[in-house]
Write a protein that binds this DNA or RNA. Sequence first.
DNA 1: GTCACATTTTGTCCAGGACAATGATCATGA
DNA 2: TCATGATCATTGTCCTGGACAAAATGTGAC
Lengths: 307, 307
Amino acid sequence: METHHTFPAALNIAAVERDTGLSKDTLRVWERRYGFPVPERDANGDRLYPASQVEKLRLIRRLIDQGKRPAKIIGASTEELLALIGDTPDSRAAAATDIPMLQYVRLHRGAELAAALRQALLRQGLQRFAAETVAPLNEAIGEAWMRGEIDVPEEHLYTEQVQNVLRGAIGTHVGSGTRPRVLLTTFPDEEHVLGLLMAEATLVAEGACCLSLGTRTPLPDLRTAAVDGNFDVVGLSFSAAYPARQAIDDLLQLRAMLPASIAIWAGGSAVQGKQKRLPGIRVIEGLEDTIAVLGEWRAAPRHDLNA
Amino acid sequence: METHHTFPAALNIAAVERDTGLSKDTLRVWERRYGFPVPERDANGDRLYPASQVEKLRLIRRLIDQGKRPAKIIGASTEELLALIGDTPDSRAAAATDIPMLQYVRLHRGAELAAALRQALLRQGLQRFAAETVAPLNEAIGEAWMRGEIDVPEEHLYTEQVQNVLRGAIGTHVGSGTRPRVLLTTFPDEEHVLGLLMAEATLVAEGACCLSLGTRTPLPDLRTAAVDGNFDVVGLSFSAAYPARQAIDDLLQLRAMLPASIAIWAGGSAVQGKQKRLPGIRVIEGLEDTIAVLGEWRAAPRHDLNA
DNA sequence: GTCACATTTTGTCCAGGACAATGATCATGA
DNA sequence: TCATGATCATTGTCCTGGACAAAATGTGAC
């Protein structure tokens, strides 16, 4: 049955950049410094990475995301790297958590996952669904990813199904005309959408009037949209993968670009606990905190109520 | 009121790559060959692009996407470029089409757009909504983008709202257990999701059992997911931006990777009319054609009905 | 008009050097 | 013992300038 050939013999450097997330520059400088990867060359002298090296690069990338240093692991064999993944300190504790929905993701049971999510939504209502089902599940997925238990397609499947359920629910809450008017998006380097959807779900459930621009909005465009759209608040979401340092810089830059009458709310792992370093910005410490922040805003005296 | 400074003085080359979609290599080689852009330099000799040059680069990028050649337009002033955009042959004809929903997008009326979409969905049902409302609207948005009438945030807003409505509707059609089982996704270089959602909507409305992995699934992962998940069909979606040549190569490569028992369906502008160059692959010529293709599959004799 | 062929244009890749930001290490003081 | 700061090593990104193949364009024969 396995007569059909599976992969092309080798990938060029651009394809490897796509597949591994390692930049072309990084791939070349690793080759120079560490002696890995050492790709073949085509007739023109261009690099051609065999699938085995790409596979190893993917493992290395994962370990680096976990905090390992390239020099320490780049010499290891594929087997040693596999052993290293899922051998983090908190691995055993986390592996114990046995959420059924996580099993559906592992086993590619998209339909069952969707059904379970929908059932949870019906039982809990939108707000508790986001806070008590999606948020913990998100975390569990992140940890399973770290442990190497799930891969790209599982994560995609998960994101798709959660999106279907959350977006369907968000759609049923119209809430136009209410206040505050919140513009939601992420910065150009942040492509994770689930945090944004969870925030939107929580906010619309509380009667805020949300408009989401999705992910990756360029800063100048964000400014224009916020000012022209007469928004009260701009909400930004950051995943754990976003460098905290850059999040702070970007937020302060946005703060300088927007008039003081527009509040900025920032949520997600990357900004958690950074309130003191973010003057003029309200850090949302967790989904539950969203409601408190919303209450704050509504309680605060405002200049433009008649605007 | 405009006392706050709007932009940082200049962007580094990585930020310009993000904002314009032009690779670092391209930016450097243009500077060498055409004398534009000519960025400032920081203390370390690194390029710093002023906002004005980035703006011009964005215009150039748009014109290139419309088919212009860099050498022909790179010398023009920002004003001349602006005049060039929206001066394409079919511009006048297209500008005449005056869909109300397109107005909502132009004016950032997210709530109104969502309401109009939802109303259309209720009136038409999922299938006709996809074919008769979303598809033409998509095309109109694409043309408005070409003409420079809408920009990144408008396009984001549109995509978000359509996603909310389509995903909500898709979610209500469970259809697990029915055949065929269709695995939907896009290739790693295709990030447009609306085509995929429209296909999914049409298929679930016809009782197919769809599972979407979202966009950008690596080929090896796609193969594993299709085989392990016991799917009958793998469906791929291509936007107009996808190079037709690459679409054909990628599809044939996927065909070689998958067992013959799994059908491949491909849809979208990039593959339209390419059926004869894609043996073993069923090209879907339009949303309406989807239903015909589904009927074909169901009518065809199969070896594995008892699988 | 349409096909084949020559020529120009254009994006991507290469090598190898440099540097700043980040992380690790270690000494110092509370 | 633990925090704080200085020093050193690591690492990703940017640089220059050269090369080449794929795509687009132009040219001529039919």
